[in-house]
């Protein structure tokens, strides 16, 4: 593997910590996207169909979560939640903050997608006697899902990138494990480039997954 101090040697030495960093990045991203999307669906439902006070409440939360930088959300959660004498670990605080960010964006995406379905679709479903949840399940959501897909994939990429901010509160995800390796071997350029490559591969996979889903949904046209 070459001599000590060369890139190949050092990356071989650091392979274990880099891989576990990358694995943590992916786990955190998956958790955030799953939790955020789940909450976001309900947020979006509330924004479209909720009574006015609920809409206003959700709208305010969404605006705040989208208007404040993610890093501030993370630090606020990390330092703030401890005040509630809840013992939050750094990764948990990070997942909570990023999920809030993700949920806010998903709510807006969901609202936009559902609102873009022509009103005639709802009326046709009503005309054959379908109830609210039936209309939603069989008529509105299958169509909205396709429109949500591209912004959802974008949010996914943003989340993967956003997990790097957790390095600031000491979560040893890919960026922090890279920095720890750099602190040992001083191969700054090479290791940052290597980490960037891993991020690009992860994000490229996310995009490919999105493209595959879009093809799956391409069987109909509006």
């Amino acid at each position: 593997m070459g001599d000590k101090g060369t890139f190949l040697y050092e990356i071989w030495v650091a392979r274990g910590s880099l891989l576990s960093g990358a694995a943590l990045t992916m786990q955190l991203s998956l958790a955030v996207i799953a939790i955020g999307s789940f909450i976001g669906c309900f947020g979006g439902l509330g924004l479209v169909y909720g009574p006015a006070p609920l809409r206003l409440a959700i709208r305010s939360v969404v605006e705040v979560l989208r208007g404040v930088p993610v890093l501030v959300l993370i630090l606020f959660c990390y330092y703030g939640l401890a005040l509630f004498s809840i013992d939050v670990t750094a990764p948990a605080a990070g997942v909570i903050a990023l999920s809030g960010f993700c949920a806010a964006h998903m709510s807006e995406t969901f609202r936009g997608a559902v609102a873009s379905i022509p009103v005639g679709q709802t009326e046709a479903a009503k005309a054959i006697g379908m109830r609210f949840w039936q209309r939603l399940t069989y008529v509105i959501l299958p169509q909205a899902a396709r429109r949500m897909l591209p912004p959802w994939v974008n949010t996914g990429v943003e989340i993967v990138k956003g997990t790097t901010l957790l390095s600031i509160i000491g979560v040893v995800e890919l960026l922090l494990s890279t920095q720890q390796a750099i602190a040992r071997n001083y191969l700054i350029i090479q290791f940052y480039l290597a980490a960037a490559l891993i991020y690009i591969i992860i994000n490229f996979s996310v995009s490919q997954l999105g493209a595959w889903l879009e093809r799956r949904f391409a069987y109909f046209r509006y």
Binding site: S167, L175, I188, Y192, L193, Y199, I200
Partner: peptide
Amino acid sequence: LVRNTPLLLLIFFVYFG
């Protein structure tokens, strides 16, 4: 490449690299 790379990584790369 830039859009798929985390900004924080780019910041460190430029500042330290």
